[in-house]
């Protein structure tokens, strides 16, 4: 059956059907799992429960009107996931990789471009040191892990998304 629907009606229907589920951060346990990855030359950490999966060899669909660190979308299970190049965001160095961390955090469909996966760490919460000084508002990082003498910054996805929204809002 075909009826007249304007775009708004369509969008409403799509929203309802998609049934966005909020997957908030898992309850803090005593032991937290972190996914350690390499992005460019740097090592970063992600909360493992924020990462749904790791995918490789994914084509990126370019989208306009977005900041440069948004490469476009990748398609996972028929859904568009916003592709972030954190190396571009933090190091101003574009990343060339087909390896992505796929995240459904906060209802958002996000994919973070990475160079390589290193390991999954299970460490007590206490080992995550918070950042001492915070320059402006929320930092992009939740804290820092110390591993073999090296510092691994743990990403705060919310703040990255907030950054995106800010950049989009100003546009």
């Amino acid at each position: 059956m075909r009826e007249f629907m304007n775009n708004e009606a369509i969008l409403e229907k799509l929203s309802a059907d998609s049934g966005d589920t909020e997957t908030g951060p898992a309850a803090a346990e005593k032991w937290t799992k972190f996914l350690i990855v390499e992005i460019g030359k740097e090592r970063y950490g992600f909360y493992a429960d924020q990462i749904k999966e790791i995918v490789t060899d994914e084509p990126i669909y370019y989208v306009p009107f977005v900041p440069p660190y948004i490469k476009g979308f990748i398609n996972r299970h028929g859904e568009p996931y916003t592709a972030f190049d954190l190396s571009l965001l933090f190091e101003k160095q574009e990343l060339d990789s087909a390896l992505f961390l796929v995240s459904r955090h906060g209802g958002d469909q996000l994919a973070f471009q990475i160079s390589d996966v290193t390991e999954i760490l299970k460490v007590p919460e206490s080992e995550l040191h918070s950042l001492s000084s915070v320059d402006d508002g929320e930092s992009y990082f939740s804290g820092v892990l110390s591993r073999e003498g090296a510092d691994i910054f743990v990403l705060n996805i919310d703040s990255v998304v907030a950054r995106l929204e800010r950049d989009l809002g100003e546009g």
Partner: peptide, 14 residues
């Protein structure tokens, strides 16, 4: 396998 392993672990975590 590595990837799968990681994925599996992630799945397990969630």
């Amino acid at each position: 396998t590595k990837i799968i392993a990681f994925n599996a672990e992630l799945e397990a975590a969630s």
